[in-house]
Design a protein around this nucleic acid. Structure first.
Length: 501
RNA sequence: GGGCGCAUAGCUCAGUGGUAGAGCAUCUGCCUUUUAAGCAGAGGGUCGGUGGUUCGAAACCACCUGCGCUCACCA
């Protein structure tokens, strides 16, 4: 520490260390142990009539100082916003000399009475001042002006995205709307949990470290267990363990947890992300569609008090029922092509027409999915369930009860983005074994995202799993949608970054 | 991984070959209802790094590093 101080040539920081010493000389401990807070900025501003002249005790970080000799105005920020504090030497006494050594960023506690200044700002007239924490690093200064229409204008906003993500603590201090997004995220998750709990489903925890990964098509992170001397994989999905629990007699389980996929990062992908997976016995995917509608509406109402959102300039209504269309029909509508009757080369021709390059070797199902993504998906603006996917794409979903070559699966789309994935779960152990074997072949052929063969999971199904509906919702993406954030990094507090230097 | 772009003071940014700049922040002085407080003054820079072109480079060129956007893959 001593070294750091000496080596740090930054004069702003050095200056603050000097102030720290001066405070010590004055006998002031600049890192207090506690402070009794009884009011918050927003309460004081919202209840001025009641509180005028009454004593309050507030604490927060100094965001602006206006010194005028023997009196000063300070804006402090607490958990709910900013409030102005008026400090006068006559009122606070000797500590006013210590106040001279305070900076923007320091955390103080103030007791005093509520009043309104000449210019009409509700403020706290301080009678005592406590220094709670001295800040040694200058925060990026932003200045705010609120015009007559209540519009906030921010000057010199802290905008460097890299710094904002790396030093999220600074981002949260100076960009209040960032904090709001994460408060919303927290509320969305707890609302979802409440909804699932109230429907009688049991929240469980399954292994993050798995000897065999599965439940999705993705490349895993690999680690090693020293005592067992075996490789372990960080889970890419919870699915297979949760279904084992359905076998075990739970008839509704869910897990909200991190999954890890060792793949590229972009606006919609972070290597670790949060997933909610739900499995309900004796239900099928039709039932699950209604359940998703209900759950999303409940959360929206709970957290935002509305079910219609303006997102990216478009009005989106989550009110049930959502539009439903089969994948095959939706493609036919857009392209005129019946992909079930068409051959692989017909589909490739259709893709080429749209300038989509094909590597070669894709299964027909994969080609159908490609065509869907190019032609249909971007236009699914209002909430839509797309149903019945090619069997090759879904080795864990149950074959469609009437449609050959398809499985009972749906994905929910909003604004062209996938927000959930669900199916009637495959509970036929013989079929499951065959699907795994087909995936095994794909691994041998070099597909590093194909599903591993999980013998124990087949064994579990052999004991008998009731008909089951399963659902996965990417929490990060749901939050992005509901809070209008364009990047997954804006809904993850500490997104993955390259190591610093 | 490919393409495009960015990197100058703590923050936000000007500066296209000739003395390193502005606003805010910081420091000194004045100021007991200010509010992007004000007035007077001051300090603060390895112009991301390395090499090259040039009499001379923050600027032009090459490479490197980091970041952003975008395409491909994925949720």
């Amino acid at each position: 520490m001593e070294n750091n101080i000496q080596q740090d040539s930054n004069t702003l920081i050095q200056r603050r260390y000097e102030e720290l010493n001066e405070l010590a000389k004055m006998g002031i401990q600049p890192y207090a142990y506690s402070f009794e807070v009884n009011s918050y900025s927003d309460e004081i501003k919202n209840n001025f009539e009641k509180l005028e002249g009454k004593d309050v005790s507030v604490a927060g970080r100094i965001m602006a100082i206006r010194r005028m000799g023997k009196a000063s105005f300070v804006h402090i920020m607490d958990k709910n916003g900013r409030i102005q504090v008026y400090l006068r030497k006559d009122d606070v006494g000797e500590i006013y000399d210590a106040f001279r050594l305070l900076d923007i960023g320091d955390i103080i506690g103030v007791s005093g009475f509520v009043f309104k200044t000449k210019t009409g700002e509700i403020s706290v007239h301080s009678k005592s001042l406590s220094i709670l924490s001295k800040s040694l690093r200058p925060i990026p200064i932003t200045k705010e002006v609120v015009d007559e229409n209540g519009n906030k204008q921010v000057f010199d906003q802290f905008a460097d995205k890299e710094l904002r993500y790396r030093q999220r603590y600074v981002d949260l201090i100076v960009n209040p709307e960032v904090k709001d997004v994460f408060l919303k995220r927290s509320k969305i998750v707890s609302s979802m949990r409440r909804f699932l709990d109230s429907n009688g489903y049991v929240e469980v925890e399954t292994p993050v470290l798995q000897p065999m990964y599965g439940g999705a098509a993705a490349r895993p992170f690999v680690t090693h267990h020293n005592a067992l001397d075996v490789p372990l994989y960080l889970r890419i999905a919870d699915e297979l363990y949760l279904k084992r629990l359905i076998v075990g007699g739970f008839d509704g389980v869910y897990e909200i947890s991190k999954d890890f996929r060792n793949e590229g990062m972009d606006k919609t992908h972070n290597p670790e992300f949060t997933m909610m997976e739900l499995y309900v016995a004796f239900k099928d995917y039709e039932w699950m569609m209604c359940f998703v509608e209900k759950m999303v509406n409940t959360i929206a109402q709970d957290v935002f008090n509305k079910t219609e959102f303006e997102i990216e300039g478009k009005m989106i209504s989550f009110k049930a029922p959502w539009q439903r269309v089969s994948m095959v029909d939706s493609i036919k509508e857009k392209t005129g092509l019946d992909v079930l009757k068409a051959t692989s080369s017909d589909i490739i021709a259709e893709l080429k027409k749209r300038g989509v390059g094909i590597k070669g070797g894709e299964s027909k199902g994969k080609l159908i999915d490609e065509l869907f993504e190019v032609t249909v998906q971007p236009e699914l603006i209002n909430p839509t369930f797309v149903t019945d996917y090619p069997v090759e794409l879904s080795p864990l979903a149950k074959k469609h009860r009437t449609k050959e070559g398809l499985v009972e699966r749906f994905e929910g789309f909003v604004l062209g983005r996938e927000i959930c994935n669900a199916f009637s779960e495959l509970n036929d152990p013989v079929d499951q074994k065959e699907r795994f074997e087909a995936q095994g072949k794909m691994i041998e052929e070099g597909d590093d995202e194909a599903h591993q063969i999980d013998e124990d999971f087949v064994r579990a199904l052999e004991y008998g799993m009731p008909p089951t509906a399963g659902l996965g919702i990417g929490i990060d993406r749901l939050v992005m949608l509901l809070t209008s954030q364009p990047s997954i990094r804006d809904v993850i507090l500490f997104p993955q970054m390259k190591p610093e230097k």
